[in-house]
């Protein structure tokens, strides 16, 4: 699973909770709030992404994030660590 795969999943779930936002048009350098997401939307996107990717990230790590790139990097890091674990 590379970083682009993870970005695709996050974009898909953000577009899925918002009206009128195309997944491909989402700029990961921005925050989900910039697209009109409320806190419940963000929880939904993070939760659905983790479930689809079969990853678990502690809340303490998630709370430090400021934009979608940060989330994708974090998920990618956890995925890489998971795949390296025998």
């Amino acid at each position: 699973m590379n970083r682009d795969d993870i970005l695709t999943v996050v974009r898909k779930h953000l577009a899925g909770v918002l009206d009128g936002v195309e997944a491909a048009s989402i700029d990961p350098a921005r925050s989900m709030k910039d697209y009109g997401a409320n806190s419940l939307d963000i929880v939904e996107v993070v939760s659905a992404s983790m479930r689809e990717l079969r990853l678990k990230v502690p809340r303490s790590e998630l709370s430090k994030l400021t934009n979608m790139d940060g989330l994708v990097d974090l998920l990618h890091k956890v995925a890489t660590e998971k795949s390296a674990t025998p």
Partner: peptide, 14 residues
């Protein structure tokens, strides 16, 4: 942590 609770609730549904 309210957001932790929302995450846990949604995970539980699945």
């Amino acid at each position: 942590d309210a957001e932790e609770s929302l995450l846990s609730y949604l995970d539980g549904a699945e």
